[in-house]
């Protein structure tokens, strides 16, 4: 700028919700591309394999077991198998949370902690069942639904307080001490209300209620996918609404998509025919991922 030009005061910068989200630890520490996710899991899997190999080599070679276990051709758990195991225990985690009558927020946070832990560690290093207990115990604390350790272990057969607590520290550290997790439930509820405002007739119909309920189920299913690492909670919520139906048994039911198209057209002033408008297009990746997962 030259001295002749009048200096125009800069308009004050508005902080948007997107700006705020980008400053969250969820965005800064826990958002990845699919390749980055893959790389993290490959590294953890290698770490696990190395640990097993080291253990086998450390065995007393005079023992008969040591001769049977040849580290070179010993079958190791693959990266895909690791993820399946983690998902298995993530579902167990929800069952356990249901037993304690914990709300959706606690369940979702616990599941998120579990997946985060096993992005950096292998199931060959840490027994996922025990890590799962620790995740649920910690999530109950971080989400304000504290359960005492005595009560917690009394309800889980063959568990001691030590088993649950000894990994709490490691879990915190693996998660880089970031405990706040944003889930799609709240944005989903926000869209549910906003549709009622913008499309009053449709919004108050029973159809929309069913579509919302079924979308909530899809959000619940999304907890067991990598969507949380790749998309923002509102994107996932929008994608779940798009895929939701009034009648889940009807193949040709596209109620969610129909309503959402009308809503987005009204909200962002975009023609219906052009397909998902910009605001929603970022969610289409999430939609595709969810669709694929369900097939």
């Amino acid at each position: 700028m030259t001295a002749d030009e009048p200096t125009i005061p800069k308009p004050p910068k508005r902080i948007t919700n997107d700006d705020l989200y980008r400053r969250s630890t969820q965005y800064r520490f826990w958002s990845f591309t699919t390749t980055e996710l893959q790389d993290l899991r490959t590294a953890s899997n290698r770490k696990g394999i190395q640990k097993v190999k080291d253990k086998i080599s450390a065995l007393d070679q005079t023992l008969p077991e040591a001769q049977v276990l040849n580290p070179e051709n010993f079958p190791m758990v693959s990266q895909e198998e690791e993820l399946s195991l983690v998902t298995f225990f993530a579902r167990k985690c929800v069952d356990l949370a249901n037993y304690f009558r914990l709300p959706a927020q606690v369940k979702a946070t616990a599941v998120s902690y579990l997946y985060k832990f096993f992005l950096h560690h292998s199931v060959m290093e840490f027994q996922p069942q025990y890590i799962m207990y620790t995740c649920l115990f910690l999530a109950a604390k971080t989400e304000n639904h504290f359960i005492g350790i005595r009560k917690f272990v009394e309800n889980i057969p063959k568990t001691t307080p030590e088993q649950v607590l000894q990994n709490e520290y490691l879990l915190l550290e693996t998660m880089k001490f970031s405990l706040a997790v944003h889930h799609p439930y709240q944005p989903l509820y926000g869209f549910y209300l906003d549709v009622q405002v913008l499309l009053p007739k449709l919004g108050k119909s029973q159809t929309w209620g069913y579509v919302y309920d079924n979308a909530r189920q899809l959000v619940h299913e999304s907890l067991f996918t990598d969507l949380k690492f790749c998309y923002t909670p509102p994107q996932i919520a929008l994608a779940c609404l798009w895929l939701s139906k009034e009648n889940t048994k009807d193949e040709n039911d596209h109620k969610g998509e129909l309503i959402l198209k009308r809503y987005l057209a009204k909200k962002f002033g975009v023609k219906k025919k052009k397909g998902p408008p910009n605001a929603a297009s970022s969610g289409t990746g999430a939609m595709e991922t969810i669709s694929r997962r369900r097939m």
Partner: peptide, 13 residues
């Protein structure tokens, strides 16, 4: 006895 204290958790979170 219940692991990391709630106040510490909130402060950190």
């Amino acid at each position: 006895k219940d692991g990391l204290d709630m106040s510490a958790i909130r402060e950190m979170k």
